[in-house]
Amino acid sequence: MEKQMIVSVMSKDRPGIIAGITGAIFRLGGDVADLNQTVLCGYLTMILSVSFEPSTTKEDVLAAISHIKTESKFEVSIKELTEGELAEAVLPPEETYILTVQGPNRGGIVHGISLFCYERNINILDLATTLEADQYTMALQLDLKNCTCSLEVLREELEKHASSSGLTIMMQHNDIFQVTNEVTLH
């Protein structure tokens, strides 16, 4: 059986990082299943899901990456997935909602919302923020599967949170965004 690993890399951004990392993986016989990367303030972070031959170890991958010639050091961490983790569904669950938060920029907005979610056992699947003309915007993809309260109560509490924090908060089902922005009809 193939071995599945999650590889995370952070480095100062420059052309050729993805080529270097995926080249090292390719030479080890690895197959990149999924890759996500983003650049923030000139730093690149990348997370890859890779499958290897059973004989390949974490140390092999680490060594291969450390042999890449680069001016700025790569900070790498690798995790091997267990069989149980492999079996978990990769599609977003049906109770996936999108939360948008908008308001004037100040400290603690992300913490306030993420704490709000944590207190109700809501998992944040994805999160993107933008700052434009001092307006802070957050878009969160939430999994409400294990949420401790009903949708109705959650909406009420979000409204309370919005009025006490002065933020504009909206929550809509993930499907709405999918059908209005994608051509394929699910």
């Binding site: 999108i98 948008t100 908008q102 699947l125 994805d126 993107a128 933008t130 915007t137 878009a139 993809q141 909206m170 809509q172 709405i176 965004f177 999918q178 209005t180 922005n181």
Partner: peptide
């Protein structure tokens, strides 16, 4: 995940 501008225009 969708882009933030798509999300905001739908909202």
């Amino acid at each position: 995940m969708l882009r933030s501008d798509q999300i905001l225009s739908t909202v």
